[in-house]
Nucleic acid binder design. Structure first.
Length: 663
DNA sequence: AGTAACACCC
């Protein structure tokens, strides 16, 4: 009687369990095998390698009675995957027997390390090369932007399959040689979905959205990857509706589809749609991955909506994402931007394996809240911990000094930035310095810095100078800065408004009028001011004057009325000179009396539970008059009010603001 | 045992 070949069917099961991410079951089956041969051992080794369990693979390899070239190659692959290239090379040298495949695996490892020339040396000495070997070389050269050498290998190939063609096409596309890619695309014998997708993403990444869309429309099968690329491409061009159309038409979505769409809404100033879609994503039972959770967290941070942020945090903890540095630093930013510094700090302290980004989130967090000392303490801790600061670290540390008026310490940090060799000072660092000196009243020194800086001063730098001129009423330098800004960003109304405020404060009304004329002639865009507040997981958005839009506008109006009375009792009179000459869009609504931040505060007073702080966000800088008024309101109503504007936080409590009027 | 497309992120 003949028996079925039991071992081989068990091996099938073993690899199936590995694929299913159940190595213990696989191992159990292996232990149960009545007889094991080299192939059974190899199944186990490759299974462990695929799951990244290198030490298990190594143990099996060490204990197996007889290894062959396949066992060695699997293990080699394991070391390469783990990034242990030195160990891999040592292993490769020790191999008793090598064939095309093992050499090719080694080749891939070298390319992964960016060592294309070493790979080439190995390639030249190989006794035999096949399609796979050559294809790997083609994509290796392309990764290093050396498409000419890639093309030589490609042209030399005795035989080419779809994969080889696609590798060459996608290599050209990644290097923005789209027309070269297209030529090959047109002449190649048979294309598959991957080929089409490679060509398409080449176009989307180059911003050539029409050509991408042409291809996309011609594709019979539209794989998720191609659709996602199309969504991202449309999103980058600001074509939100088109992106959404693709999204809607997809029968099958992955988490990249959802999170890309969420991000597009967020970046194209549709935050509410972003959140709404995130909610639908959860309802569609789409399990978020690390990148998608990060992009949603960024939406929460940018909108500073604590309730949503907490919800995502909960999702994260449940999915065990709370150990990923990207996720954790985004989460810290959420709590920072929601004004929950203590929570941010706790998450920071609890995280281990802190990388630069994580430290940076905490440093910039303290800086944004005007807590310079704490920010610098974290900065020092970071250096003591042996973590190398990057550009962002320095921006955080310098702006911490700037917001807290610590000029001397700022200068010292700037000096150390200039003397270290790792980070080169950029325009942004100079902007911090200009901001710092400017706020401290050293406007001439700030201008001096701009004149001497080695990189070209951009709008951020000049904007910092102009802002300082506004605080200290330095009209001559303000004019210089404004003129520069008008050259750099003609579309931006900000400089006009600032300059006009300075003129107004000095009583130079003719200049105010002149500016106003220029502004209307140029019809520059004014970003509409809006404020929002989150109550019971709903975000309520207010725009200046548009009070009737809100469903509860009647009680809000009553509250505003009441607050007006209170303010009057406290001896407050609106700073009309300030208001009258602000050309901000919101100011036009003056006769409607209320700025968006005040509406949001009024709504908060009505809806937020007694004793809880009111958190209001504004997309622009808070208006000076509102700053005074809200400070008084916080005192009169005995409420803590936290207002985040475009620049920083203002914690109003007991008649004081955390910015100490230094903003 | 090894090859091509996306990739959102501090």
């Amino acid at each position: 009687m003949r028996c079925l070949s039991v071992p081989s069917s068990l091996e099938l099961f073993i690899s199936a369990y590995f694929l299913n991410n159940q190595p213990h079951v696989a191992r159990f089956l292996f232990e149960q095998m009545p007889q094991r041969n080299t192939t059974s051992y190899n199944t186990l080794i490759s299974g462990y390698v695929k799951l990244g369990c290198l030490s298990d693979a190594q143990t099996i390899f060490d204990t197996m009675p007889e290894s062959n070239v396949v066992s060695w190659t699997s293990l080699l692959r394991g070391y390469i995957q783990a990034g242990a290239i030195n160990e891999a090379e040592a292993l490769f040298r020790r191999m008793p027997e090598k064939n095309v495949i093992s050499c090719t695996v080694m080749l891939g490892g070298l390319i992964q390390e960016g060592r294309i020339d070493d790979a080439r040396r190995l390639f030249d000495t190989m006794p035999e090369r096949d399609v796979v070997t050559r294809t790997i070389m083609v994509s290796g050269y392309c990764q290093m932007c050396r498409t000419a050498e890639a093309r030589e290998i490609f042209d030399d190939m005795p035989r080419r399959n779809v994969i080889a063609w696609t590798a060459m096409i996608s290599g050209y596309a990644h290097n923005l040689q789209l027309d070269q890619a297209r030529k090959l695309f047109e002449v190649m014998p048979e294309k598959n979905e991957v080929t089409w997708t490679a060509m398409l993403t080449g176009y989307t990444q180059a911003g050539r959205i029409e050509e991408a869309n042409d291809l996309f429309k011609r594709m019979k099968m539209k794989p998720v990857i191609a659709c996602n690329a199309m969504i991202i491409g449309f999103g980058q061009c600001g074509m939100v509706t088109e992106a959404r159309d693709v999204f809607n038409q997809m029968l099958e979505k992955d988490d990249g589809t959802w999170s890309s769409m969420v991000k597009i809404y967020e970046q194209n100033s549709s935050p509410l749609e972003a959140l709404d879609l995130f909610r639908s994503m959860q309802m569609a039972n789409c399990r978020p991955s690390v990148p998608s959770i990060v992009s949603v967290l960024i939406v929460c941070a940018n909108l500073a909506i604590l309730g949503h942020g907490r919800q995502v945090h909960a999702v994260m903890v449940r999915s065990h994402f709370d150990s990923d540095v990207f996720v954790v630093s985004a989460l810290i930013t959420v709590y920072v931007k929601c004004g929950e510094l203590a929570m941010a700090r706790m998450i920071f302290d609890m995280s281990d394996g802190k990388d630069v980004g994580l430290w940076n989130s905490m440093i910039t967090g303290y800086a944004q809240h005007g807590l310079g000392e704490e920010a610098l303490k974290i900065f020092n801790d970071m250096c003591s911990a042996g973590v190398i600061p990057d550009e962002i670290t320095y921006i955080g540390a310098l702006s911490a000094c700037s917001y807290s008026g610590m000029v001397e310490r700022g200068k010292a940090i700037f000096k150390s930035l200039n003397s270290n060799s790792i980070v080169r000072p950029t325009a942004e660092h100079y902007a911090c310095m200009v901001d710092m000196l400017g706020r401290a009243g050293q406007i001439e020194k700030a201008l001096e810095i701009i004149r001497k800086m080695p990189v070209e001063a951009d709008a951020v730098v000049w904007g910092a100078l102009l802002g300082a001129c506004r605080i200290h009423k330095k009209v001559e330098i303000a004019e210089i800065a404004a003129k520069k800004l008008l050259q750099l960003e003609a579309w931006n109304s900000g400089p006009y408004i600032l300059l006009s405020n300075i003129y107004a404060a000095m009583g130079r009304w003719e200049d105010v009028a002149k500016l106003r004329k220029v502004l209307s002639l140029r019809s520059v865009s004014k970003s509409p001011g809006c404020s929002w507040i989150e109550v019971d997981k709903t975000v309520h958005m207010f725009t200046g004057g548009d009070i009737m839009v809100h469903p509860e506008h009647e009680i809000i109006a009553c509250m505003l009325e009441r607050l007006d009375g209170l303010l009057k009792e406290m001896g407050y009179t609106p700073d009309l000179s300030y208001v009258l000459h602000d050309v901000d869009e919101e100011q036009k609504m003056l006769n409607l009396r209320y700025h968006s931040e005040r509406q949001a505060v009024a709504f908060g007073l009505l809806k937020v539970r007694e004793g809880m702080p009111i958190r209001v966000m504004k997309n622009l800088r808070i208006c000076g008059d509102c700053h005074t008024a809200i400070n008084l309101i916080a005192k009169a109503m005995a409420r803590e009010i936290i207002l985040r504007d475009a620049n920083r936080f203002h914690h109003f409590k007991d008649g004081n603001c955390s910015c100490r009027e230094y903003w």
